[in-house]
Design a protein around this nucleic acid. Structure first.
Lengths: 102, 102
DNA sequence: CAGGCATATGCCTATTTGGTTATATTAAGT
DNA sequence: ACTTAATATAACCAAATAGGCATATGCCTG
């Protein structure tokens, strides 16, 4: 059971997502762009698929992959409170939490 | 060489960061909150330290850890173009990239 | 239906990783 | 100095993981 966090840990998967972000891609196209052999690409595509980050459409012998970015929201939401830090402000929530400590 | 992406892959490290986000914490406090044994916590703290996501201050026998959130910007920045998706808009950049395909 | 594409899958292996136990280190208190 | 507290480190192990090669599967074309 891969979480969206563990998905992003692998650079190959990030590159795949970055490709799919630009539009639909067949496996062959992805193999070309990533310069990896096909089984390796298919393997990571499967991981993305099973995690719900990508979906496939069949086109004759081709499989066309498409980004399904919703799963990334989990990461984005986790990151949200940290964003406040480098945006240089401590909002009410941060101050509240901070005052809760010892 | 751990990237900020691989750092977030581990739930223990995410919990540590979530604790440190609230304020400085000694190792003992972190051990209590995470309900893990001390070496496991120290091990992950070291990873965070070496990745620059946390810094330590010595206080007698205690080591006080502090969040250093800058490293997370890498993840946040990588995520930025995806955010556009679930925010339901395709801005100029997205359209540009999309038109570049095939 | 034979042969060639495009892709998935199975198996193998090397590496990495997170946790555990035991031990070292350093400081404080008596 | 001796003891205890707090933390780090080392050695070890089990599980997960990514990639490589070989092979299976399915579709299309002649």
């Amino acid at each position: 059971m891969a979480t969206s966090f563990t998905l992003l840990a692998d650079p190959t998967r990030r590159r795949l997502l970055d490709e799919l972000r630009r539009g639909e891609r067949s496996v062959g196209e992805l193999v070309d762009r990533l310069q990896m052999n096909q089984p390796a690409v298919s393997k990571q595509l499967r991981v993305l698929r099973e995690a719900g980050l990508a979906s496939v459409r069949v086109d004759a012998q081709r499989r066309i992959y498409r980004l399904n970015p919703d799963g990334l929201r989990e990461v984005d939401e986790w990151l949200a409170p940290y964003r406040a830090f480098w945006e240089g402000r401590l909002d009410a929530m941060e101050r509240t939490l901070d005052s809760m400590e010892d």
